[in-house]
Computed example of a mutant assay.
Amino acid sequence: MKYTCSIAMGPLDQLVGIARTAEEVGFDSIALPDSLFFMETAAADYPYTPDGSRMWDENTPWVDPLIAAAAMGAVTSTLRFYTNVLKLGSRQPLLLARQVGSIANLTNNRFGLGIGIGWAPEEFEWCGVPYRRRGARVDEMIKVIRLVLGGGMVEFHGEFFDFDRLQMSPAPSQPVPIYVGGHTDVALKRAARVGDGWTSAMMTGAQLAETIGKLNSFRAEYRRADQPFEFQAVCIDKFGVDGHRELAEIGVTDNIVMPWVFDGLGFDAPLEKKQDSLKRFADTYIHSGWQDA
């Protein structure tokens, strides 16, 4: 099982230091969150908390995940980065493909695109994109991004996007993996149908086991069960070596963690304390040999 460190809601000036330490102690990846802006009044409930409230406020720090990947990638050589998840629905796919291709090239293929539709109507409408039919639009966006990043002269004529022959160079030398987020059956089917993996929000171990079972069933329906597939999980109730072993047994391939929170520290803890937490976590889980037992 891989280990990924999430940097959600932390001070921006700590990102480079966290990346360096995460690579030094053996983490596989950094998970990069996405939030466009904070609406004073939201038209919809946040879907990943029991009461629909947001876990952040107008002063919570966020950084564009693509810019963060470029900055952190510049000071590392093996650490991977993926968005967890980028709100695809409010973006323009050709512009995004240009950015993703640039990061993939600059990091020597150490970038993965984790995507979700987006939950807030304001993020669509205030960025000039209709909220209606967002799922179908995102499905077409994924096709556009994969097509353009594949290299060569391409064209696309769809319901939402239409362009004649164009080419973006250089294309990444390896395909950029696309990980699909979301907990609904519609999202899970999208992940099984077109994704290289699925990424979760906060879930219990039991919820993850049920969801991974569904995903595997959907992948079989789409005749993709034999293809490589990542199960990236944020688990809220499986801790310690035994808990991590349980996650591996139910099929989690990538455990997304925030070690300083496990140590009782806040999102805004000093960088040095977060680096100490990364080292302790690595000693306990990454280098302890439990996966070889």
Rank of each mutant, 00 (worst) to 15 (best):
F160C: 04
A233K: 07
G195E: 13
F163T: 10
T199E: 09
T184M: 09
K189S: 08
D162E: 13
V194C: 10
V180R: 02
Q227T: 14
M202I: 11
F161G: 03
V186R: 10
F161N: 04
D196H: 13
A201F: 12
G182W: 01
S173R: 11
S200F: 10
A206K: 11
Q232R: 07
V176A: 08
Q227L: 15
P177C: 05
G195K: 02
T204C: 11
G213R: 01
R190L: 15
A209M: 04
P228A: 01
L188Y: 00
H183C: 04
V186E: 14
A191M: 13
F161Q: 06
W198Q: 00
S169K: 10
T211I: 13
L208R: 06
N216Q: 07
R219W: 09
R165D: 11
D226P: 06
E230D: 15
A171K: 11
V186M: 08
A220Q: 15
M203I: 09
A192K: 02
N216V: 00
S173H: 03
Y179D: 01
E159C: 04
P172W: 05
F160V: 01
Y179L: 14
S173G: 15
L215P: 02
F161T: 05
L166R: 10
G205V: 09
R224P: 11
D164G: 12
G213D: 07
L215E: 02
G205H: 05
M203Q: 15
M168Q: 14
T184I: 04
G182M: 14
H157M: 07
R190M: 11
Q207Y: 01
Q227N: 10
V180Y: 00
W198H: 00
I178N: 10
R165H: 13
Y179R: 02
V194F: 05
L208E: 03
I178Q: 13
I212T: 07
H183M: 11
H157C: 07
Q227M: 14
G182D: 10
P177G: 05
R190D: 06
Q232C: 09
S169P: 06
V186C: 01
F161S: 02
T211W: 10
R223H: 15
V186D: 04
K214G: 00
N216S: 05
E230Q: 13
L166V: 14
E221V: 12
A187V: 02
R224D: 02
R223M: 10
A233M: 10
F231D: 00
P177S: 02
A171Y: 10
F229A: 00
M203F: 01
D226M: 06
F163L: 12
P177H: 06
T211D: 01
G205P: 05
L166Y: 03
G158L: 02
M202C: 01
